[in-house]
């Protein structure tokens, strides 16, 4: 589903590369933790999957397409196949829960009738039924992240990318979010989640890809956060 072939990324302003000769192969339906300290290249890895940036060398394959060779007008098509969730939720403060999720469908031109049926479905799935009319500031952090996950998942993408989705949440709330992501993964959606929350990684026991200074130092099935813990 996602394949990195000898991928390196050098930002112009930086001395050392953010990613160095990365080779990772993620199968359809996998759940992969991307771990490593701050600045190790996790976000860069995810941005390359979305073609938010292009690799300095090497190839990135997503859903069978070489992302580097994708012409710019096809990038939106790629992004419709990938749901994204961030640490800071990125909800629109002046839109309700329902409108925030519906927005993702409206801007890709989905018909009204479709939106009216699928948005309540996905809100129920993430556990937000009855809160459709609330505004983001009327929700807890965990609930806001559920809205963001609903928005990322409402178009049923093949891949869900989450960049430190529990970074702003307390441990209990984080576990709830993890369970939700796990349920989404069981529908067949491939999930790549960057995190440095050792507790979660150790508890869930999924594949772990560890980055350090842009190098893949470990790629382990059913791994823990780090040997040192």
């Amino acid at each position: 589903m996602i394949r990195f072939e000898n991928v390196s990324k050098q930002y112009k302003s930086q001395h050392s590369p953010a990613l160095r000769d990365v080779n990772v192969d993620i199968e359809r339906g996998e759940f992969v933790f991307l771990v490593g300290p701050s600045g190790s290249g996790k976000t860069t890895f995810l941005r390359l999957c979305l073609k938010e940036d292009r690799p300095t060398s090497g190839n990135v394959w997503v859903a069978g397409k070489n992302v580097g060779k994708l012409s710019s007008w096809r990038v939106p098509q790629l992004r419709r196949q990938i749901g994204t969730v961030f640490q800071d939720f990125r909800l629109l403060p002046n839109k309700t829960v329902f409108e925030n999720v519906a927005f993702a469908l409206e801007v890709i031109g989905k018909p009204r009738g479709h939106i009216k049926t699928v948005v309540p479905e996905v809100l129920e799935m993430v556990g937000l039924e009855g809160k459709e009319k609330r505004f983001p500031h009327e929700l807890s952090g965990g609930e806001q992240q559920r809205v963001a996950i609903a928005r990322a998942f409402v178009n049923r993408p093949e891949i869900l990318i989450a960049d430190e989705p529990t970074g702003n949440l307390d441990p209990n709330t984080s576990i709830g979010i993890m369970k939700l992501l796990d349920r989404i993964n069981r529908t067949g959606t491939t999930i790549v989640m960057a995190t440095h929350d050792a507790q979660i990684v150790d508890q869930v026991r999924k594949r772990v890809v560890e980055l350090a200074d842009g190098i893949v130092v470990r790629d382990q099935d059913r791994g823990v956060y780090g040997y040192a813990h």
Partner: peptide, 11 residues
């Protein structure tokens, strides 16, 4: 957000 969810440039 529009960019992220795959809205076209035109939209």
């Amino acid at each position: 957000i529009m960019r992220l969810v795959g809205a076209s440039k035109f939209y």
